[in-house]
């Protein structure tokens, strides 16, 4: 699904060069639930940005779903983000002026579906996160957990194959966090690959594999399990 080889990302400010990613090698198979962990400033966010095609990188290669995405135009990258990737952000990033329905609608708007198809997908997606009753609510009228659920619905509505979650529980209390993590699990079970970035070890445990980052490099990674073996473990 996701394969990075020696990916480097350099930030230049005047004469100083800072390596945000100093040669990352990482491989995520289809259907995996991977947690990326590391302290503040280790390059987690940069990794996520590069992985999600939110940002470009300077060196190395990156294959997403078998496609080389290192030299794509903005429009192509936008299309991949829209169709293949679902984002879940720490601060939810809901658009405060839009109600729940319209927020979930945002990615579909860029896909050019007709109104009926969009409506079906949105309703289904909201049902999935258990918010069908709050379609007309504005984000400010929802609790943090509910907001994050809307964000989930938005990430899922386009049926992406890869979910990128950035500290999805960072702004939530532990009770709400549990619910959100259950949801992530569920999504993964349904077949989506999930990559979650976090600094919290207890949350990282919910993933099936852990990758540790330090100073822009992978320092420790569990071996890549085989999909079937993994499923077996789960079913036990």
């Amino acid at each position: 699904m996701l394969s990075m080889t020696a990916v480097k990302k350099i930030y230049r400010t005047n004469s100083i060069e800072t390596y945000a990613l100093s040669g990352i090698d990482i491989e995520v198979r289809e259907g995996e639930f991977v947690a990326i962990m590391g302290p503040s400033g280790c390059g987690k966010t940069t990794f996520l940005n590069v992985a999600g095609l939110l940002d470009t990188f300077d060196q190395g290669s990156y294959l997403l779903d078998g496609q080389d995405v290192s030299r794509l135009s903005d429009a192509s990258m936008s299309r991949i983000r829209n169709e293949k990737i679902g984002f879940i952000f720490q601060s939810f990033n809901l658009i405060p002026d839009l109600d729940v329905f319209d927020n979930v609608d945002v990615p579909l708007r860029y896909r050019g579906w007709n109104a009926k198809k969009r409506k079906e997908a949105i309703t289904e997606s909201l049902q999935r996160v258990g918010l069908s009753g709050r379609i007309k609510h504005l984000p400010s009228q929802l609790s943090g957990g509910q907001q994050q659920r809307v964000a989930f619905a938005r990430a899922l509505v386009g049926e992406p194959s890869l979910i990128l979650a950035d500290e999805p529980t960072g702004n939530l209390d532990s009770h709400m966090a549990e619910g959100i993590l259950d949801l992530l699990d569920e999504i993964n079970q349904d077949g989506a690959t999930v990559v979650m970035v976090t600094h919290d070890a207890t949350i990282a445990k919910r993933a099936h594999r852990l990758v540790r980052l330090l100073d822009g490099q992978v320092v420790e990674a569990d071996s890549v399990p085989h999909r079937s073996a993994f499923s077996l473990v789960e079913s036990l």
Binding site: G52, L54, D74, A75, S78, R79, R81, N82, E83, F87, F89, N93, I95, V106, P107, Y110, R111, R154, G158
Partner: peptide
């Protein structure tokens, strides 16, 4: 930024 992340092109 969010819209862009969700697949909006510059256009």
């Amino acid at each position: 930024g969010t819209r862009r992340a969700l697949g909006a092109r510059q256009v």
